[in-house]
Simulated assay, not measured.
Amino acid sequence: MDTIGRFAALLSYDGSAFHGFQRQKDLPTVELALEEALNLLDKKGRRVKVTGAGRTDRGVHALGQVVHFDISWPHGPTALRKALEANLPSSIGVYEVVPVDFAFHARRSALWRKYAYFIWKGDCRLPHLGRYVWWNRRGWDMDLAKKFLTMIEGFHEFGAFCRKADRPSDARRTIMEARIEEKGPLLKVSVTGRSFLTNMVRIIVGTMDEIATGRKSLEEVCRLLDGGSRGEAGPTAPAKGLFLWEVRYDPMPFGCEEYNAVTGNFIL
């Protein structure tokens, strides 16, 4: 008799193919695609429920999304990874599937999440990267951009950096690290924290754009981090530049060399 076990999966996906991670009626989502594939694989014919580490919005990508699910599967995790990926659309990849304890929860067990946002500063268009970067040709003062990212690190009131309709009563969050890397005209902004508000990283990037171009001052950032309104912050940067980059656990259930090679080499 087949038993039910819990598995965790490390995924990547092209968010331009989906209306976000979370299931929505009559719309393609990552959660729907995963559950439809897993329903075909469950040996007991059960409906499999997937839980993700983060609910990415429409158009947002993932390089290191983590999900867990309970399934009846007697053939081992390697075979499950191959069978799952074979039944998914090409816009979703599965790096690794591992058995985990039933106490493991993709969202609640996470220590922190890292998001990465990519910006292309070149004068010419990059058609093959158009779905994954924000083409922003405005001149930036990189010292101001870095100072802004340093200012948002730590425990602050981030209500100004949340979509107005979704601002919670307690919008305090902790940013563990915020940094920017340059590879020629390609910029990567990384923001790490335990949890995030709706559109928070994209509004951080949109506000950084206004700081780095001189349309807002660093002095205004202090007010934004002290209960400022959404209208005082910058615009919401386009979804296509944002990736859920990494989710960390202790102990870490994954050791995928392919994933580590991709993230370690700053590959889109």
Rank of each mutant, 00 (worst) to 15 (best):
residue 1 M to P: 14
residue 2 D to A: 14
residue 4 I to H: 04
residue 4 I to M: 15
residue 14 D to Y: 09
residue 18 F to W: 02
residue 20 G to M: 09
residue 24 Q to L: 09
residue 30 V to P: 05
residue 33 A to D: 03
residue 35 E to A: 07
residue 36 E to S: 12
residue 36 E to A: 11
residue 39 N to L: 00
residue 41 L to C: 07
residue 42 D to E: 01
residue 47 R to G: 06
residue 48 V to Q: 01
residue 49 K to I: 12
residue 54 G to R: 07
residue 61 H to L: 03
residue 66 V to K: 02
residue 67 V to N: 01
residue 67 V to H: 05
residue 69 F to G: 02
residue 70 D to R: 01
residue 71 I to P: 02
residue 72 S to A: 15
residue 74 P to D: 13
residue 75 H to I: 06
residue 77 P to G: 12
residue 78 T to E: 15
residue 78 T to V: 13
residue 78 T to K: 13
residue 80 L to P: 05
residue 87 N to W: 02
residue 92 I to G: 00
residue 92 I to D: 02
residue 93 G to H: 11
residue 94 V to D: 06
residue 97 V to K: 02
residue 98 V to P: 08
residue 99 P to M: 09
residue 100 V to G: 12
residue 104 F to P: 08
residue 112 W to I: 01
residue 113 R to T: 08
residue 115 Y to N: 06
residue 117 Y to D: 03
residue 120 W to N: 15
residue 123 D to F: 11
residue 127 P to G: 07
residue 127 P to R: 04
residue 129 L to S: 12
residue 130 G to H: 13
residue 140 W to R: 00
residue 142 M to T: 10
residue 144 L to N: 13
residue 144 L to K: 15
residue 144 L to E: 14
residue 147 K to S: 13
residue 153 E to W: 05
residue 153 E to Y: 08
residue 155 F to W: 12
residue 155 F to G: 00
residue 157 E to W: 12
residue 158 F to E: 04
residue 158 F to H: 03
residue 165 A to P: 05
residue 165 A to H: 10
residue 165 A to I: 11
residue 168 P to H: 08
residue 175 I to Q: 02
residue 176 M to N: 14
residue 177 E to R: 15
residue 177 E to G: 10
residue 180 I to A: 07
residue 184 G to D: 09
residue 192 T to D: 09
residue 195 S to E: 15
residue 197 L to Y: 08
residue 203 I to M: 02
residue 204 I to Y: 00
residue 205 V to P: 05
residue 210 E to H: 10
residue 212 A to W: 03
residue 213 T to D: 00
residue 216 K to T: 01
residue 218 L to C: 05
residue 219 E to M: 10
residue 220 E to L: 03
residue 221 V to C: 00
residue 227 G to S: 04
residue 229 S to N: 12
residue 229 S to H: 09
residue 231 G to P: 02
residue 240 K to T: 04
residue 241 G to Q: 06
residue 243 F to Y: 13
residue 243 F to A: 04
residue 248 R to K: 15
residue 249 Y to I: 12
residue 254 F to N: 10
residue 259 Y to Q: 10
residue 260 N to V: 11
residue 266 F to R: 12
residue 267 I to Y: 08
residue 267 I to Q: 14
